[in-house]
């Protein structure tokens, strides 16, 4: 610092420091730009591969049908009300995500979530003001022909894989699991022949409450009751003379000859 108009030393040092610091910082930053960002000019394209590599949890219904494991169930489903229409309830709608099922768990979970089958069905089938009335059948549990919420579960009368009316599938109250077993269905419908077989096949829908062969359910025992008593009671239930039980809506659909067959069947059991 000789001339009086010269810049002081400290100012020169400061400027040099600023230049070095600034240069290092901005050039240093360039080293950290990811390759993918250089290409796109903004985001890191590398992330696409990462996002695309996420595991698939929901495998889709087709993958169940394409294997040899669930062919018959898949066939039942694809021909029934849940699978035949364009609006399908998929396998995983009720069973939960099964993308890892074939490799990881050997056992297929019964239903998604907490396992409450009635609530699962009501997820879609409960009648609500906001639900359009077209499409799937909707019920109010308290008014359903079989008002059995908390007592019975849906799958005892309806096959979840091919639901519909008049397709009783179960002969057991205690084990609803058999409901989804197609073999259980065949054993109940097979049996004796003639008038008695008609009574037997009709009676199978009674078993869910009155117990197999009319004995052992939570509802009154039917087996071995007098023919006349059974017949009169059913007629009175149908006409509404006897009131206040769940038999009213049930009996309202039974024809005369069916009453006869049922009374014959139950009175014939020893």
């Amino acid at each position: 610092m000789k001339g009086k108009n010269k810049t002081p030393h400290y100012a020169v040092r400061l400027v040099v420091l600023i230049l070095i610091g600034g240069f290092t910082f901005f050039v240093g930053l360039r080293f950290f730009v990811p390759e993918g960002s250089k290409l796109t000019g903004s985001y890191d394209a590398e992330s696409l591969l990462y996002i695309a590599s996420a595991p698939v949890e929901y495998a889709g219904s087709k993958s169940c049908g394409n294997t040899n494991c669930h062919e018959s169930l898949f066939k039942t489903w694809s021909e029934g009300a849940h699978g035949a229409k364009e609006e399908q309830s998929k396998c995983e709608t009720c069973h939960g995500p099964q993308g890892k099922h074939p490799e990881k768990d050997s056992k297929l979970p019964k239903v998604r979530g907490d396992g409450n089958v009635v609530e699962l069905c009501l997820t879609c089938h409960r009648k609500m003001k906001a639900r359009s009335t077209t499409g799937q059948p909707q019920i109010t549990p308290q008014e359903h022909p079989y008002p059995h919420e908390g007592v019975l579960i849906c799958t005892q009368c309806h096959n979840p894989h091919s639901p519909g009316f008049n397709k009783p599938v179960s002969s057991s109250v205690s084990s609803p699991d058999t409901a989804i077993d197609p073999k259980a269905k065949s054993t109940t419908t097979d049996g004796s022949s003639g008038g008695e077989s008609k009574g037997a096949s009709l009676a199978s829908s009674c078993f869910s409450c009155h117990g197999p062969k009319g004995r052992g359910g939570f509802a009154p025992v039917l087996a071995g009751q007098p023919y006349e008593a059974l017949k009169n009671k059913l007629i009175k239930f149908r006409s509404g003379e006897l009131k206040g039980t769940m038999m009213n809506p049930v009996a309202s659909k039974i024809k005369d000859e069916e009453i006869d067959a049922l009374a014959h069947y139950f009175s014939g059991i020893k």
């Binding site: 610092m1 009086k4 810049t7 002081p8 030393h9 400290y10 100012a11 040092r13 400061l14 420091l17």
Partner: peptide, 19 residues
Amino acid sequence: LTLFDDNISTEAQAFDHKW
């Protein structure tokens, strides 16, 4: 902090003030 320069002459002070 002073960048090893202890110049506080009046001229330097004027320089500081200007900047």
